[in-house]
Amino acid sequence: MKIRVLYEDNIKNGHKNYTTIEIPDGDYSVMLDIDYEQRLAEAKPEKKAEVQRCKTLQEMFDLMNSKEYNHWRRYHRHLGNPKTPYRKDDQAEDETDVMDTFADNSQEIERSNQYEYEDVCQWIRTALGKKQDWADMFIAVRIDGMSIREYAQICGDSENNITQKLKRVEKKLQVFFQNRQI
């Protein structure tokens, strides 16, 4: 049996995007009973007579989907147009802050930067092959911004040795990158 479920994350600009889930055939009476008991417990005393047991699993999920959509709609319906426009000349006495209505995609940008960082690190590790300690050194010093002195203290190596290894790594990466471009 296939059922359609609506998750709050799948509501985009007021449009419902359902996720289809395949459930093996069987007796769903226990699930339907639990749903009925929960809705009955949540209902107001004067509305308890109107609560009915769902006959199918899809009917139960449709009820949940409409509840989820209505919750999303109630929260997002006024975000597009603030009632009082923001004024810079302080003529409006109202505390409306329009900045709350703009989308915050900072997490998406952070995630994208993290993926890019991981791709670059993976490319460096691939280019250096068996010299993973060199790759770690290059990533720590050149990409993460750790000082050569700090890295030398952590590794217990001399600064001069680290500097020479970095030059060799840069040369090797440059050759690897030029060969990949051809």
Results as ranks from 00 to 15, higher is better:
residue 26 G to Q: 11
residue 41 A to K: 13
residue 5 V to Q: 11
residue 66 S to M: 12
residue 51 V to E: 00
residue 5 V to N: 10
residue 46 E to M: 14
residue 55 K to T: 10
residue 9 D to E: 15
residue 56 T to L: 00
residue 40 L to V: 02
residue 32 L to V: 03
residue 49 A to S: 08
residue 42 E to H: 13
residue 37 E to R: 08
residue 16 K to I: 04
residue 17 N to D: 10
residue 46 E to T: 10
residue 16 K to A: 12
residue 53 R to Y: 05
residue 28 Y to Q: 02
residue 56 T to C: 05
residue 48 K to Q: 00
residue 62 D to H: 10
residue 62 D to Q: 13
residue 21 I to F: 09
residue 11 I to P: 07
residue 47 K to H: 13
residue 52 Q to W: 09
residue 27 D to K: 03
residue 56 T to E: 02
residue 7 Y to S: 06
residue 6 L to V: 01
residue 64 M to W: 14
residue 44 K to N: 08
residue 29 S to E: 13
residue 67 K to V: 05
residue 27 D to F: 02
residue 60 M to R: 06
residue 8 E to Q: 15
residue 37 E to V: 01
residue 57 L to A: 01
residue 64 M to G: 13
residue 37 E to G: 07
residue 28 Y to A: 02
residue 9 D to C: 14
residue 30 V to E: 11
residue 38 Q to K: 14
residue 27 D to H: 03
residue 42 E to P: 03
residue 55 K to E: 14
residue 69 Y to W: 01
residue 47 K to S: 15
residue 61 F to H: 01
residue 69 Y to G: 00
residue 13 N to R: 14
residue 59 E to V: 01
residue 47 K to Q: 14
residue 67 K to L: 09
residue 48 K to F: 02
residue 32 L to A: 04
residue 10 N to L: 01
residue 41 A to R: 07
residue 31 M to G: 02
residue 55 K to N: 11
residue 16 K to F: 04
residue 46 E to S: 14
residue 50 E to A: 08
residue 45 P to F: 15
residue 38 Q to T: 11
residue 62 D to F: 09
residue 24 P to F: 00
residue 47 K to C: 03
residue 55 K to G: 10
residue 13 N to V: 07
residue 51 V to T: 08
residue 14 G to L: 06
residue 8 E to M: 13
residue 15 H to E: 14
residue 20 T to L: 12
residue 19 T to P: 04
residue 32 L to W: 05
residue 44 K to V: 04
residue 66 S to A: 09
residue 37 E to L: 15
residue 58 Q to D: 02
residue 11 I to R: 05
residue 21 I to N: 01
residue 5 V to P: 02
residue 14 G to A: 14
residue 17 N to M: 11
residue 66 S to E: 07
residue 50 E to R: 07
residue 41 A to I: 09
residue 27 D to N: 15
residue 7 Y to V: 01
residue 54 C to M: 14
residue 49 A to L: 03
residue 31 M to C: 05
residue 32 L to C: 09
residue 51 V to W: 04
residue 66 S to W: 09
residue 6 L to I: 00
residue 8 E to C: 03
residue 12 K to P: 03
residue 15 H to K: 14
residue 26 G to P: 01
residue 40 L to R: 06
residue 29 S to R: 06
residue 30 V to L: 12
residue 53 R to Q: 12
residue 55 K to W: 11
residue 44 K to Y: 13
residue 34 I to T: 06
residue 14 G to H: 12
residue 45 P to A: 12
residue 54 C to G: 06
residue 25 D to H: 10
residue 65 N to V: 02
residue 64 M to E: 13
residue 6 L to R: 03
residue 37 E to W: 09
residue 18 Y to T: 02
residue 24 P to E: 02
residue 29 S to L: 10
residue 23 I to T: 04
residue 38 Q to V: 12
residue 62 D to R: 09
residue 31 M to P: 03
residue 68 E to K: 11
residue 23 I to L: 15
residue 61 F to M: 11
residue 11 I to C: 02
residue 7 Y to H: 15
residue 31 M to S: 06
residue 39 R to L: 04
residue 37 E to I: 07
residue 30 V to M: 08
residue 42 E to K: 15
residue 49 A to T: 02
residue 54 C to A: 10
residue 33 D to H: 10
residue 68 E to G: 06
residue 59 E to K: 11
residue 67 K to Q: 08
